[in-house]
Design a protein around this nucleic acid. Sequence first.
DNA 1: AATCGAGCTTCCGGCCACCGGAAGGAGCGC
DNA 2: GCGCTCCTTCCGGTGGCCGGAAGCTCGATT
Lengths: 282, 282
Amino acid sequence: MSPQRDGQSGPSVTGRVLGILSAFGPGAEALSLSGIARAAGLPLSTAHRLVGELAAWGALERGEDGRYRIGLRLWEVGALAPRSLGLRERAMPYLEDLYEATRQNVQLAVRDGHEVVYVERLAHPEAVRVFTRVGGRMPLHATGVGQVLLAFAHVSVQEEVLAGPLSALTPRTVTDPHALRRTLAAVRREGVAVCDGLVDLLSLSVAAPVRGEDDRVVAAMSVVVPSAGSDPRTIVPAVRATARGISRALGSPSARRRPSGVVTPLPSAAGADAPRTAERGA
Amino acid sequence: MSPQRDGQSGPSVTGRVLGILSAFGPGAEALSLSGIARAAGLPLSTAHRLVGELAAWGALERGEDGRYRIGLRLWEVGALAPRSLGLRERAMPYLEDLYEATRQNVQLAVRDGHEVVYVERLAHPEAVRVFTRVGGRMPLHATGVGQVLLAFAHVSVQEEVLAGPLSALTPRTVTDPHALRRTLAAVRREGVAVCDGLVDLLSLSVAAPVRGEDDRVVAAMSVVVPSAGSDPRTIVPAVRATARGISRALGSPSARRRPSGVVTPLPSAAGADAPRTAERGA
DNA sequence: AATCGAGCTTCCGGCCACCGGAAGGAGCGC
DNA sequence: GCGCTCCTTCCGGTGGCCGGAAGCTCGATT
């Protein structure tokens, strides 16, 4: 099924072109021609020709240092991905509010296979450092949003992940299948995942599911705060409310009616601009 | 409307693949196979083969309705574009603050050829409607950010734009080359562009340049507010400060010291019309 | 139910665009 | 100067691509 994440995408021209794009990645934003050829497993002259065409179109750009980077035109096309732009556009106002209230890290992510892909992230420069970045990937079982996405994913996906090896990022990462199964059940029951020290011992994340038109979970969002001195209980309601707000904006039937009375203004910013997070019925 | 979305990118396979990607665009986020073939000018069977390869890799995704959309994987690669992610990551906190303060539309854009491309946009649902969207394009002369980017672009770019036809989006769009030239000079002098009713008669935008490491203008940002009842003078300082903040975050030397008193000691207003743009030597 | 049409998928022989080795140039450090 | 890496251009052989045609799956129409 997986056609090798390598550059070895096949002998077809299309495969080679995609192999060239695959050569770029986090930590490899700029590559020399020979670097691309090496990474994609292509002869230099072949790479030269293909890269030239890509650059002429705008998929790649050549910097003053002679190295190639991903071009604006490709970014533009990529921005049309429904799971990025469509989702993002509608979720932003809500993420905004939560970010403003917490001044920490707020993230939005979707599932792709057995990994979670971060689609949006608002980070305060002085907030806890998190390792994720927009466009980045992480294993499902090891992050807050990942656990949420896994918990609400099709059973077959869950089984596949539970069967596979569960890597540990910290000593606290859940690596035992049975424990993970229980965790997932709890997430489904609570409608929220609270993860302390899974990715990084210093940070804690609270994640909740975001539902789409047909009420399926299409994304997950989370807030990451420092482990020390944070009480999850003050954050959970805010995350729940935000996730619900986004779900409603996306047309989720179950988020239609406002949760009668329980809207919970955010504890942290209780004062002046209490979040209109749960307002607005489109 | 569509200036020949091309498709005729050449007889090479790479060109055809890029032609397929070009078939997607604002207003065409989802296409059937035959729709793609039509838009890209390819025989159905050829399109079928290429699209199949793209989908297998994740550049395209096939929805339940059988139509194709841009895939998450392509978005991921696109997100590596330095003019998107690198810029965005550092600019966000500042844009955030401005958004929070104004509760209107805040935008970040870069120049590509003779157009402006919007890289980020924070929009309050109740703010003035703006026509732009993330990943969207507009002519340089007709928007606030565009005027800023044009004013600080290489002279040759300015001349090309001034020579070409200047389309009008509203009766107030500047279409006279001489008037535009004066406007650009003013923008350089003031370090900010105030545009009322250029794109849309109901909205007004205030834009300012963002500088990079070598002090060249690499982007522009703006706030869009309703024309009626807004006093630009209250907004200009905030926009200037935000743009300066972003410039500093990007390592701009001229934004190093905090604005101790006067704004910019830049010799930008040296020669009346002569931009001190050292843009791209090669 | 039969017919039609639009859209999708598969197949395969012919041909031409792609491949990539090789040669030549540009820049840099020793 | 010499060796090194990286980039660019050229060109003949051939293997991958092309695309017409046939078959398939829907859903609408008669």
